[in-house]
Nucleic acid binder design. Structure first.
Lengths: 348, 348
DNA sequence: GGACGACGTGGAAGCGCTTCCACGCCGACT
DNA sequence: AGTCGGCGTGGAAGCGCTTCCACGTCGTCC
């Protein structure tokens, strides 16, 4: 009897044993094996031991497709990077978020998959992926203003948390740094140094972080009674090369600037280079504050005063919010805005 | 009749229609719908039209778990980054590979998931993930010498291609740049410039790219009749900060050096900074050649002469090899070594 | 004109798993 | 001593899909 069953079910993939085979070997039913695997309390200690031995011996691993077909769970969450510019992919902030989320998940049974979408076509592919039930939840980052993914994923009704607040103020769970507050503090620091012409080298204005950091700069200047001067702002793209080019333009537009708030550290590194090339000393002639507190901020020349984001906290919140939503415990659209902190170094 | 069936099977997830519902709506059997979905030729044009309309109307998407339970395919491949140092994650080379593989897959029905493993525990998690049948194939990159993943994945018997040749010369499919040749050409270029004391700032020696690039430098010097001088080599870690520190050490060990081959562009940027700080002019006092042809190589000061790797070609080969193996067409352990190219700029 | 393929279709089995339900066993009550 | 409840267990259904097989229904060939 038993051998027949074994042969029948093991034929196709000898390397991958099934529940049945474990059950046969352990001399119990499939139901019991399943209970042991899923740590149900309704199993006697003896049965548990026997089954575990059989699992060990066969090196049994449950088939995920079969399991998720019935449980409708996958124990997988996706981190979607919606970014046409592949260079931004190597931005230390993204790397930090990916690293942090991955670390926050390490202790759990959840697996992280990273998906990238460079255009509408790939966005659709990702929405389909989610719709097909490949993942239990999604974290969306680097959202551009006209991004379709939030809409598409809402429609799919998959648990969703954004990294960065949404552009349109829609009801959706998100975690963000206090970009506006951080930029304001950075600018106030520059003003406190006695600088009168504080420029801004912003990020892309279709990224909410770009918008908010710009807004923080505007606010600090306004609070200090400064007139807004369009010559003092140039928009960058968060890359080092972009930062250098933008700084060149800024020096051209406003040769009398004596300080600049740069919306990201990679851009600030580029800006430092442009300033050096232009013969401006940092911080003597031009004080510089960056944003991110990336590794490079501590090692560049001069070391960069910058705004640190609490990456650990952000990623923990991200994962917490998403898990709560997956568990169905979540209220509507919880949000978390994490405080930033000015890190003083030599550049300002 | 029909309504009953519909209700029975649609109960749980009203938003996600099943094959049955499509079949009922189209007035055909599930088998026929399945054939249409899978583009089988054995369907009449009329049936096809009707079914497609029903699919459209219901916004039907096949359930991946159910499908892969029977087909034993997932249409997903994993790119595994086995790297404890999270900073390396933002290395432009990795970003380029991820981007390229993702692009090469864009035209196919395959989805790319990115997995990272920082320690043995996470490596085991990934092996389990593969063993559970979540992916059809795996690309492994950034392999350290004592990495367990190649062994674990071979055991799982999942189609596998390495990005970078294996340390132990084992039989396994891989794609790699001609790191050794590139390093040799770079060093020969330095020698051709008349430099006599050509140092090497290597990558980590537990990464095969680090080993091979070092070997190329050694070979070029040997070919030119130079005695090996341990003072001329320092090991770095592929990061900018590491490159800077290593350059400082190198200048200390060999103050008379007049050229340096740096095994990666981020390190070269750090090295340039160290050289400037030390008051050495580039290329006048010290000529510098990097490796990667990262974006930063063109924009740094001075622009970096560097060795370009054919990323497009490498990622195309990677995907091609893996797909062939998944399809079962592959012979044993095919390999591809892609030629590199010296890009001349101002630093050497 | 009758047998024979080819072709499109539907029925049904089964992929590996979870979970509901029923069953039998035991100790603890009345 | 008889009944009851709890507990561990096995049987069986069913998750949504693919695919084998059998079954008409044609057009075609001798």
């Amino acid at each position: 009897m038993a051998p027949v069953t074994t042969e029948l079910t093991s034929g196709a993939r000898p390397g991958v044993p099934t529940l049945d085979q474990v059950a046969v070997l352990a001399g119990v039913s499939r139901a019991t094996v399943s209970r042991v695997v899923n740590e149900s309390p309704r199993v006697s200690p003896e049965a548990r031991v026997v089954v575990q031995a059989a699992i060990e011996q066969l090196r049994y691993v449950p088939n995920r497709a079969a399991r998720s077909l019935v449980t409708r769970r996958t124990d997988t969450i996706a981190l979607v990077l919606s970014e046409p510019n592949s260079q931004v992919f190597s931005d230390p902030f993204f790397a930090g978020i990916v690293h942090g989320v991955s670390a926050a998940l390490a202790e759990t049974e959840l697996t992280l998959v990273l998906l990238t979408a460079r255009d509408a076509r790939e966005q659709r592919k990702i929405a389909r992926y989610a719709r097909q039930g490949h993942v239990d939840g999604v974290v969306l980052m680097s959202l551009h203003s006209e991004d379709l993914l939030p809409d598409m994923l809402s429609e799919v009704a998959v648990p969703l948390v954004l990294c960065g607040r949404p552009h349109d103020g829609r009801e959706v769970a998100y975690v963000d740094a206090d970009n506006r507050g951080g930029a304001r503090v950075a600018t106030e620091h520059l003003l406190g140094l006695g600088r009168r012409r504080v420029a801004a080298l912003t990020g892309p204005m279709d990224l909410i972080a770009g918008v908010d950091r710009h807004a923080g700069w505007v606010q600090a200047l306004a609070d200090a009674g400064h007139e807004p001067d369009p010559a003092l702002v140039v928009h960058g793209d968060f890359t080092e090369a972009g930062g250098e080019a933008a700084m060149v333009r800024l020096l051209d537009q406003a040769p009398d600037l004596d300080a600049v708030f740069v919306a990201s550290d990679p851009m600030a590194v580029g800006a430092l280079r442009a300033l050096r090339t232009a013969g401006r000393r940092v911080p003597d002639d031009v004080a510089v504050v960056g944003f991110d507190d990336a590794a490079v901020a501590a090692t560049c020349d001069p070391p960069l005063t910058t705004v640190a984001q609490p990456l650990d906290r952000m990623t923990t919140e991200l994962v917490g919010l998403l898990r709560a939503r997956i568990a169905g415990e979540a209220g509507p659209a919880e949000t978390r805005t994490c405080p930033t902190r000015l890190v003083r170094r030599a550049s300002a």
